[in-house]
């Protein structure tokens, strides 16, 4: 037991596993950073667009504060359409658009485009679900005080849904880690590309295993962070 711990702490397991392949450490580190970068920016951008879209989807629904069947049906339809395309196909489908925006369709910056565009409708639906959990009575109470739709959104919907929205961010990020690996296979960079070249094409498990371990740590970390932040809010209110 203590042998195992000292082995982990000293890092000697790493050198004994890698042997002479120390280059693996630097390439995994670079790829990890690329993944974090892509996923981070894509998550951020997908909320910049997806959060308002979710708000619109909720509030334009039947009987809601900004009821508008036409807008609701059209946006809902687009969201469903994008969500029904498997990511790997979507990625290829929007290459022309990616080229227009970034100038190329290869590399981390280019991957951010399909990642973001695919995540926006996903985020919108997550946000929609979070908002629908809020009791209608709270919205009505605000309306009875003379709140405008904007005030209802900012003072009731968003603050009340915050813990649930934060959990949604964790889910989105984790999904994007998965998507980014797919993007990596078509040259998107990050851990996906690394695993594809060294793992799939040459089957070098000296690269595969560290990649898998880093992915597990990333996903765990994001989930724990999300859970922790959400719990901090709900605990305080309890």
């Amino acid at each position: 037991m203590s042998d195992a711990i000292s082995l982990v702490i000293s890092g000697s397991w790493l050198s004994s596993f890698l042997g002479t392949n120390t280059w693996v450490v630097s390439s995994v580190a670079v790829a990890t950073w690329e993944t974090i970068y892509m996923v981070g920016i894509a998550t951020l951008l997908s909320y910049v667009f997806g959060l308002p879209l979710g708000v619109v989807l909720v509030t334009t629904d039947r009987g809601h504060i900004l009821e508008n069947q036409a807008v609701n049906k059209i946006l809902g339809g687009i969201v469903n359409a994008v969500r029904s395309i498997p990511f790997i196909i979507f990625l290829i489908l929007i290459i022309p658009l990616t080229r227009i925006i970034v100038g190329t369709y290869i590399g981390t910056a280019a991957s951010i485009v399909p990642l973001t565009l695919a995540a926006i409708p996903f985020v919108a639906r997550l946000v929609e679900t979070s908002f629908k959990e809020i009791e209608w009575g709270l919205i009505e109470a605000a309306l009875s005080m003379g709140a405008s739709p904007w005030q209802v959104i900012c003072k009731v919907l968003l603050p009340e849904a915050r813990p649930s929205v934060i959990l949604g961010v964790a889910i989105t990020t984790i999904n994007l880690v998965g998507y980014s690996a797919m993007a990596g296979i078509v040259g998107g960079g990050g851990l996906g590309t690394l695993a594809y070249y060294h793992g799939y094409q040459r089957y070098e498990d000296v690269v595969m295993w560290p990649t898998v371990i880093v992915l597990i740590i990333l996903v765990q970390g994001v989930q724990m962070l999300g859970d922790g932040l959400a719990a901090r809010i709900t605990d305080k209110r309890r």
Partner: peptide
């Protein structure tokens, strides 16, 4: 207006 189920904001 006051309500049967109070309708207070849990975030406040």
């Amino acid at each position: 207006m006051i309500f049967q189920h109070f309708n207070l904001l849990s975030s406040r």
